[in-house]
Design a protein around this nucleic acid. Structure first.
Lengths: 154, 154
DNA sequence: GTCCGTGCAAAGGATTTGCATAATC
DNA sequence: GATTATGCAAATCCTTTGCACGGAC
């Protein structure tokens, strides 16, 4: 099933969001719903707090930057959101869909692509076991230059 | 060849350090030499700027925190040092020995272990090529609980 | 002697917190 | 109606920068 952002779908999605918040033990408030909706928007999946905030400013929403941070931190604690520490000084947030994946990050344009590789996942299990290490989670970030930027370089 | 921190070895190591600085195009100064020496100390390989600074404070060295940051940034630019963005808000610095390796980070005690896996390295090449992505570098961080902490938990 | 490096203090950017108000349940 | 969330501003943490002095070459 493909999700659209159109109005006719909007109601259903909003109900889903409310259920997600309830399941996370969070009250349903306007800022939380709006942030959840923005994170679900298909075109971009990785945001800094500032980027989210600017989206709200530009669409005339009344949400403070502090609230954006507070909500993101709560979402992270609830497992709704994953906080990434890519290079640079800002955290990047992404909606936690059920599936695990890793990232290709373009150091030129900042574009983030996702990938998942079963071979790598399996090897990490082996490595952890050999090191007598109880893995809880992991991040694999590949930095470089995406095709678009590589072509532009000339 | 195993390196000791003893005095008789100290002179040789200091000469090596000076050569390293020269090769990096950096003047030989006391703070740079001291930071390099500390980073080479065998017992710990991963430091925050604050940790390095505290080491100097406790051994009575006259080095400012700003200088620690400046030198680390220069070392990073020169490829002498790698800056990691583990979870948490501080950068972690590590001496760049020639070999690449990835990290197991204990979320309890903060201990950092290193590992390298050829299978994973190779897969990353494949993944990058499939994504038409020109990889420059990568970080794989496995978070979890080390054996010592797991045993303590009881 | 010239130029670069350092220390200190102040500035900067990202994120968090205190508090009065406003919203949820 | 009680409790929790929000917005704003101030505070905090990590890191960088400006400037006058000291050290390297």
């Amino acid at each position: 099933m493909v999700m659209e952002n159109g109005d006719q779908q909007g109601f259903k999605q909003r109900d889903k969001d409310k259920i997600e918040l309830k399941n996370a033990g969070l009250k349903i408030t306007a800022p939380r719903l709006k942030i959840l909706q923005l994170l679900e928007s298909a075109d971009q999946r990785h945001f800094t707090a500032e980027e989210l905030y600017q989206e709200f400013v530009q669409s005339g929403e009344e949400i403070g930057l502090a609230t954006v941070y507070r909500v993101l931190t709560q979402f992270e604690a609830a497992g709704l959101v994953i906080r990434h520490h890519f290079e640079g000084n800002q955290s990047v947030f992404e909606l936690a869909k059920g599936d695990h994946h890793d990232h290709l990050i373009c150091v030129r344009c900042g574009r983030v692509e996702e990938f998942m590789d079963d071979v790598i996942e399996a090897r990490q299990q082996v490595i952890s076991q050999l090191a007598h290490f109880k893995m809880s989670h992991h991040f694999l970030n590949i930095y470089g230059c995406c095709q678009t930027c590589e072509t532009k370089k000339g």
